[in-house]
Amino acid sequence: MSAQELFVTAAHTFLSAGKKSLSIPKSLDLFAQVLAVDLGLKPSLLYDSNSATAEQVQQYLSSLQSSQLVSKSLLTLDLNGNTLIVNPATVRLNIEQLLHGDSVAVIDVCHSLEKPTLSETLRGELKTIAQDVLILLRGCEHLREAEKPLTAGDKCEEWNLCTVFGLLLGYPVTYWFDQNKSFENCLSMTPLSVTTASATWQVMGEGHRCHLFSFSIPADLLVDTQCNLKNWNVCLQERFQQQNVLTDLTVCQTLVTLPSVCL
């Protein structure tokens, strides 16, 4: 069985939800995303291809690792029912940069605000969460290969998962809102600058275009977060040059305004 057949078969075998399994294009895109995590181009992948459980995603990942398609250092993280495939080394590096500087900006998007606002106060809360994640990852350092998903337990119930996802996915900005008051936000009809990064993966004799990143920044805050965005871009370019599996990295920005934004 070829490598291409192995990762398509792994997706069909382990990630079926009910009677539905991933299509070949979705299986290819998923593996390209996992490959990007393994290469250190992105720290984590939030699995949202279908409603497969964290245990199913772990079985899928273990199958790829057993076939030597990706390294055994990757692990599956279950955050309150949300599943991520994580490169611990890259996440730790990002967190250390955050703890020793201002690599990630925190934007308050509480529903009660007239417009999104940068918050220095919330940066301290983000660093506290980052330290908790670091402790969680250190707990699995002795494992050569994870056999089941890593879970944060009750601790993650205190976290704003939207903020945590921004941290784990390697974004230069992350959103926060007071989830004790409302899960709604003030991004409705707010002009947003959406940054996307994509690359090409040669598979089955063709170039498969895959998205590596996609995140938004309120247009009014672009100037204030320009340093974060620039540093993120430079870091991505440097990591991209250190590998030769993916090619043709493209980073672009588009302006969108939406009637509602779900975080």
Rank of each mutant, 00 (worst) to 15 (best):
R239G: 08
Q65I: 05
L134M: 12
S44P: 00
L161S: 06
S119F: 03
P172I: 06
F183V: 10
V223N: 14
L113E: 14
Q131A: 13
G40A: 08
E141G: 02
Q59S: 14
V8L: 14
S103C: 08
W232H: 14
E5V: 04
L98G: 09
P88Y: 06
L98S: 09
T90L: 10
V256D: 15
V256S: 12
I107D: 14
L64S: 10
L30Q: 11
T128H: 09
W232E: 14
W232A: 13
V8R: 10
E120H: 07
D29L: 02
Q59V: 00
F183W: 09
Q33L: 06
L168R: 09
S27F: 01
L64A: 11
E147H: 03
A199D: 11
M204Q: 13
G170Y: 03
Q68R: 12
A10G: 05
F7K: 03
A32W: 01
F183A: 13
P218L: 11
T225M: 09
N244W: 00
S44L: 04
A130D: 12
L61Q: 11
Q226F: 00
Q241E: 15
A89C: 06
S66C: 05
S51D: 14
L134Q: 14
N80H: 06
L84R: 07
L45Q: 11
R92L: 15
L229S: 12
T117L: 14
D78L: 02
N233I: 02
L93P: 00
W232T: 08
L30G: 08
L22P: 00
A32K: 04
A105C: 06
S21W: 03
L221T: 08
G139V: 03
V106N: 10
L77T: 08
D248H: 05
S112F: 01
T163I: 04
F240A: 08
C156D: 15
L99C: 09
I135S: 14
I107G: 09
Y171V: 05
D132Y: 00
S62V: 03
L41C: 06
T247G: 04
Q97C: 08
